[in-house]
Write a protein that binds this DNA or RNA. Structure first.
Lengths: 153, 153
DNA sequence: ATCAGTCAGTTGCATTTTGCAACCAACCCT
DNA sequence: AGGGTTGGTTGCAAAATGCAACTGACTGAT
């Protein structure tokens, strides 16, 4: 019988609903482009190499989800660009966590990515942290609030 | 002309290669299951509602990628279960970041997820942190090490 | 020794999503 | 009038996914 008490039965819905928005092959790459400063249709299409019909559907989906917003940058003809909303900016930990994992585990021969804090010029890391003791937390120090015993994993 | 100087041109390869492993509809959900303590084929299939042919291909891919490993739990017939490798455990920030985002932005009426630190019983958060000053970092305080100016986003 | 049941898949086929290339519409500039 | 730029749409082929039925290796009960 499975031990579902550890590491959150409840997380199901949050992760699933997050993946409903960004859980396909392109959405996170589109968002990465916007984070990097690409805001227009053609910029994103050329940078990602995505087919334009797919970019259209992805941008619409992300706008509908409240992650991006269309803002006009000219009239006649009306042209829009795509910018992050607050919800979109809140996805930065996801991108940084993915990037960090890829750096360490998948891209060992390629160039290391270095994102830095604008204030300090020091590298950024992504981690899980305890809101009480402030310690950074490894996978096996996590459990769901409902459970009592940690699991060996 | 796009301003690609901000937020990392170099991150492309790391994020893309990470998404090569976990960038489809099911892989992260499979990993979430394993984090939750589901280690066997049937447990994962029943919990996720995934078709068994897809679960087969996902598990094989994750094993090939070094994220999961097959360990035999019985002989006659040989049966394996799937466990996280160190690389797999290192994906926990990605799952926690996604979960946290889903909690805040997608799942506002559903039950809140509460993952806690085993030592403290206090909730866990995921964030980007400066390795120098230790401050948690918001999206617009990030830039690529190659660039000089931050961008307005 | 046969029979039902479990577990971990495999196979075949329908449906959905993605990828590619060509085309379109509004506008500008010469 | 003709060409260029931007931001798409359309049609069709290819690939991924979903569903349901089936298999193979075993166990344990009759």
């Amino acid at each position: 019988m499975p031990d579902r008490s550890t590491y959150a039965a409840a997380e199901a819905d949050s992760i699933t609903s997050a993946l409903d928005v960004i859980g396909d092959r392109w959405s996170l790459l589109v968002l990465r482009g916007v984070f990097r400063g690409l805001h227009r249709f053609g910029e994103l299409r050329d940078d990602l190499g995505i087919a334009s019909n797919l970019l259209t559907t992805r941008l619409c989906r992300l706008v509908d989800a409240g992650v991006l917003e269309k803002v006009p940058y000219q009239e006649r003809p009306v042209r829009h660009e795509y910018r992050l909303t607050a919800a979109g900016r809140d996805l930065s930990p996801v991108l940084v966590a993915l990037m960090q994992w890829g750096d360490v585990h998948r891209n060992q021969d390629g160039p290391r990515t270095t994102l830095v804090h604008t204030d300090c010029n020091a590298p950024i890391e992504n981690l899980n942290r305890c809101t009480d003791c402030g310690a950074s937390i490894d996978a096996h120090e996590i459990r769901s609030a409902e459970s009592v015993r940690p699991e060996d994993t």
